[in-house]
Each structure stands twice: as C-alpha cells, then as structure tokens.
Design a protein around this nucleic acid. Structure first.
Length: 231
DNA sequence: GCGACAG
DNA sequence: ATCTTGTCGC
C-alpha cells in the first residue's frame, strides 16, 4: 500500500487562492486502485445546511457501514461555522474542514469513503471527494446526484452506464442505479480507479437510487442539524 | 456578453 | 443545501 501522508493546504482567503490550491492538489491525486482485497466496510460523507441560518453553521457527518449488511459500525458528526461560502466548483473549501474534524472522532475507519459530491468530474479535476481524500490520505469516490460539468446519459436499466464526457475527456461515469430515477454521477476521488468506483457504488445501491453509505450519512447530518437547532 | 452552476 | 403533503406507482 502506498504512503498515506495527508495533503496540507492553507485556507484560501478568496476564490483566486482556492483555484490555485486546487491546481496544486490535483497533481497529487492517485487514480489507481489501492484498496484492501476484501472491502469490510464502506464509508459515507455528507454535510447538511440550514436555510436562513445567520450563523452559517454546517453539520458534517461520516458513517461507516458493514459492506455486506449495511449495519452501522460507527458515526461521527461535527457542527461548526462555515468559513467559506458555497461557490460552485469550490465546495471542498466549505465542507472539508468540518468533515476532517468528524473523521478524527470516527471510531471505525472505512476502507473507502463514498462522498456526496463530485470527484474528478470537476472543472479542475478536484471535486469535494478528491479534496477530502487528499487531505485525509484516504480512498474516496465521488457520487453526485446532479452534474457540475460534463454530459452522459445511461440506459434505463439498473446498472446501465454511460461515459461522463467533458471537453473531450472522460471524467467519470453516469450510472443508472434505479429504474425511472435520475442517474448518479460517479467519479474518482482518490486512490481508486473509475471501474472499481462504479462497481462499489452499484453494489452499495441495492435497488435504491442512492448508495447506502450516502443515505446513512445524509440522515446522520440531518439529525445533527435538528439536534443543534434545539440547543 | 449570456447562461450554467456539486452541496 | 433547505422549505413541505399528498400522491402516483411497483
């Protein structure tokens, strides 16, 4: 297994600095498989926001599920003030800090994490999943529910896929996880190949549109938000 | 200049 | 992302 040294970066003051940081980080991405032969557990990452919240708090959640039973093995959340606004293309700078905090308290670390957002299917090849994977030095897969860039329309049957193309480059795979539902957009995050990423996501889908780890993380993030709203 | 735009 | 009930379909 390769070195897992976390990638260090300075928090950007503005978009120009963030853009430069992304270029720097993108050069360190590993797009080949580097996973355990038998995946024992899958992780899920998501962040919940509160509409009209003047405090600008974000609620990050990480979950670790048994890869075969989907049983929850560990959950960790982090609520904090977002120090970077939501700007399409720079989501990592807003959500990664809180996810990293949650990661340090996640009792059981997953073999690979499915992240609610793009991986390399991004204008500069550095979506949230890549960003998080680099900072943590952990294998990640980007699983987005809608497109940021690129085009690709899979067939109607579950398991059908179509190359996600952008500017003549293949940046990911559009995956039909369920009939009649909008496709998922899978792309490499860090330390996994696209083929493996798609196989893992599809296997974690099981008839539902979203992969189990993503759903669990989404639920955990919402619970954290509702709990914080009371306090 | 105009439109698009993960969460 | 979030605000929200019922309702259509397997």
């Amino acid at each position: 297994m390769r070195p897992q040294t976390p990638f260090h970066w300075l928090h950007p003051r503005d978009i120009a600095e963030a853009r430069a940081a992304q270029g720097e980080m993108a050069a360190h991405l590993i797009t080949t498989d580097d996973l355990p032969l038998n995946l024992a557990c899958l992780g899920g990452a998501d962040v919940s926001n509160t509409r009209f919240d003047p405090t600008k708090r974000v609620h990050a959640a990480l979950v670790t599920l048994d890869a075969t039973t989907d049983a929850a093995l560990a959950t960790a959340t982090e609520t904090r003030i977002a120090d970077f606004p939501y700007v399409p293309g720079y989501l990592g700078f807003r959500e990664v800090p809180s996810l990293v905090a949650a990661w340090s308290r996640l009792a059981t670390k997953p073999d690979v994490m499915l992240v609610d957002g793009q991986g390399m299917a991004h204008p500069r090849g550095l979506g949230l999943a890549c960003h998080l994977g680099l900072v943590l030095g952990v294998p990640t897969i980007g699983v987005a529910k809608s497109l940021l860039v690129g085009v690709g329309e899979p067939g109607p049957e579950p398991g059908d896929t179509a190359p996600l193309l952008w500017k003549g480059e293949r940046i990911g795979t559009a995956l039909r996880s369920r009939r009649g539902a909008k496709p998922l957009y899978v792309s490499v995050g860090h330390r996994v190949s696209l083929g493996t990423a798609v196989a893992i996501v599809l296997a974690a889908t099981r008839g539902r549109r979203l992969a189990a780890p993503i759903r669990a993380a989404h639920d955990a993030a919402n619970r954290a938000r509702r709990a914080a709203a009371l306090a």
